[in-house]
């Protein structure tokens, strides 16, 4: 295989050259996740960690602070961190949606499920079998594998939208009846007239997203080790590299 300088520099980046500048692994590599998607992914992950931790402590506050009330603002800071991270999450999510108009095909994946595609359903089955140790190896996928795709759409995309809507509805209660938050998200209280229910649902939503994060991080690490393609580095560099050249 002829090694172009471009190939070499890419390969060097991935550390797959030997000392004589020979490419040892030059498995096909495809640019999957463009920079905005990657930046969004990590900013979003960070925001969600902050939201889940602070949200938990809003629901079950820390033990009482000693001394005078005027000396502390603990709950205030926790809530402030939650709301700030909430804004990061919401603005990030909006930008991520906008990016689907400019980005590549993969940038649209988490926003819909190709339920009309037979191969996609078959792919889910095969991935399930792979996770049940019934397949010797998984298929290779450029974007998300079908099972990951389902989890991302159902547990991440839908619930993040849900958390943003309920979050801003709750925020509008403090911001006041004339705030833009109330104008944009106040309709939530048409369906749930008692905001206690919105608190409860927002709280349950946190657990859905926590469950998603647990499965997601485990799957990312596991696939990084077990599958025939790179995972975590793909979300860092954007490049997907395949570890063999067999088909299927």
């Amino acid at each position: 295989m002829s090694v172009t300088s471009d190939d070499r520099s890419r390969a060097v980046l991935r550390g797959v050259m030997d000392a004589d500048d020979h490419v040892i692994v030059s498995g096909p590599s495809i640019y999957v996740y463009e920079a905005p998607v990657r930046i969004w992914h990590w900013a979003n992950a960070l925001a969600i960690v902050v939201l889940a931790v602070t949200g938990y402590f809003i629901g079950s506050p820390l033990p009482s602070m000693p001394g005078e009330a005027s000396d502390h603002f603990l709950m205030g800071y926790i809530r402030f961190a939650h709301f700030s991270a909430g804004y990061v999450l919401a603005i990030g999510f909006l930008c991520r949606i906008l990016w689907t108009f400019f980005g590549n095909r993969h940038s649209r994946q988490i926003f819909y499920l190709p339920v009309w595609s037979g191969t996609w359903w078959a792919g889910i089955l095969r991935e399930l079998r792979w996770y049940m140790f019934l397949e010797k190896e998984p298929y290779k996928y450029v974007g998300h594998n079908p099972l990951a795709h389902v989890a991302m759409f159902l547990m991440f995309t839908l619930f993040t939208a849900f958390m943003i809507v309920t979050g801003f509805a709750l925020y509008s209660e403090g911001a006041g009846i004339d705030s833009w938050q109330a104008k944009l998200f106040g309709w939530v209280f048409t369906y749930f007239p008692n905001s206690q229910d919105v608190h409860t649902l927002h709280h349950l939503g946190m657990w859905v997203i926590v469950v998603f994060a647990v499965i997601h991080i485990y799957a990312a690490i596991r696939e990084d080790i077990m599958s025939r393609q790179t995972m975590i580095s793909t979300m860092i560099s954007g490049e997907r590299q395949f570890r063999d050249e067999r088909e299927g």
Partner: peptide, 20 residues
């Protein structure tokens, strides 16, 4: 909400550990 969510998260966490 915490008991339900925590229980589900716990079960999923345990499942992940077993699977790993």
């Amino acid at each position: 909400a915490d008991q339900v969510g925590g229980a589900v998260a716990g079960v999923v966490g345990a499942a992940v550990a077993v699977h790993a």
